[in-house]
């Protein structure tokens, strides 16, 4: 108790760091792309304390928000490639090129760990006059532009999921933009919008409490967090070619970082994400654990970028063709 209070006051003696001669020699800076309290922020702040003892250094995490993560990405890209600046981000940079948000993406960075993947699903207000994906499609087609879909801007998860849906069926709906899935799900419960494509983790508590209903699980397999909900591919096997798909969280360093530093970071975070408390947090929120690094992570990132870039391009919401950047069609 005394120690705790003293710690709260002093704060500088927190990490009992073992003595190390080589990397890391000093505090590491972790730049989080999204704001405090968001899911990227929560995941990063939850996993990093487990990695610190193995690194033997403190990781000072800062939120650098804005420009759908582009500002943090640019900042880390401008720092020296010495392994002392980590980019803690989500999937967004993989779409920057086609969305016209700059010429940088994760190809300029070395993945330390691609931690987990979210599972998209489609939820609706309880009063919506449909209960399944099939019914929704029929209702929407019978009442064009009347159903309000929440969205989070071009390139956000709802726009990609909608692009995926419209590649198979016609969906004439009205999109009402929100600045995140949190506010949009709030609006869904208040009836301001009717349907929202969201990530399972953000919607699961509302679904469990019966405040919203699941219309479709956009995945190729049933999810343990939502037993009894059939994946969308059962009725619409056409979606199988895109799935599994979902937003992800990862930690990156700039290309050119010394191997010694990269391997130290990879080792520390690979252990940290296996921590039982962290696994419980990830799975409790309905994310699928990935824990990828090296070539596996690179392959995952490339596949994700190829599938998603072409989806948004074919749906007409991209500003540039993926072809211009040499992104192959899946």
């Amino acid at each position: 108790m005394k120690i705790k209070l003293f710690g709260a006051v002093a704060a500088l003696l927190v990490a009992a760091a073992p003595v190390m001669a080589e990397y890391p020699e000093k505090d590491i800076q972790g730049v989080i792309q999204w704001g405090a309290g968001g899911s990227t922020d929560t995941v990063m702040r939850a996993v990093t304390p487990h990695a610190e003892p193995m690194l033997g250094a403190k990781v000072v995490m800062q939120n650098m928000t804005g420009g759908v993560g582009a500002i943090a990405t640019k900042f880390v890209g401008a720092q020296e490639a010495d392994g002392y600046t980590l980019l803690m981000g989500a999937e967004n940079p993989q779409l920057y090129k086609v969305m016209g948000l700059g010429d940088s993406d994760y190809a300029d960075f070395t993945p330390i760990n691609v931690i987990a993947r979210g599972v998209p699903l489609i939820v609706a207000n309880n009063d919506a006059p449909f209960n399944t994906f099939k019914e929704m499609v029929e209702y929407v087609q019978a009442h064009p532009n009347e159903v309000k879909f929440g969205s989070t801007g071009p390139g956000g998860l709802p726009s990609v999921v909608t692009a995926m849906l419209t590649s198979e069926v016609e969906l004439p709906v009205t999109f009402v933009p929100y600045d995140g899935d949190g506010p949009a799900l709030t609006a869904l419960q208040g009836g301001a919008i009717d349907v929202m494509p969201a990530v399972l983790g953000a919607a699961i508590e509302g679904v469990k409490a019966g405040r919203m209903k699941v219309i479709a699980l956009v995945d190729s397999a049933e999810n343990p967090a939502l037993p009894g909900i059939a994946p969308i591919t059962v009725d619409y096997p056409g979606y199988e070619k895109f799935l599994p798909w979902g937003p992800f969280f990862g930690i990156f360093v700039k290309n050119g970082t010394p191997d010694e530093a990269v391997s130290k970071l990879v080792g520390a975070y690979a252990e940290a994400v296996k921590n039982p408390d962290f696994v419980a947090l990830i799975e409790g929120r309905g994310f699928s654990m990935l824990n990828l690094s090296g070539d596996e992570a690179r392959a995952f990132l490339d596949k994700w970028q190829s599938v998603t870039s072409w989806l948004v391009y074919d749906a007409g919401i991209a500003k540039a063709s993926p072809e211009e950047f040499g992104i192959p069609r899946p």
Binding site: A36, G182, I204, G206, K208, L281
Partner: peptide, 23 residues
């Protein structure tokens, strides 16, 4: 969350193994 601070407290509760929500 009702404001920025409660948004972060929600994050803290997740980390501590709670699931803030209607339940």
């Amino acid at each position: 969350p009702g404001d920025a601070v409660t948004a972060i407290i929600i994050g803290a509760m997740f980390i501590h193994g709670l699931n803030p929500g209607p339940m």
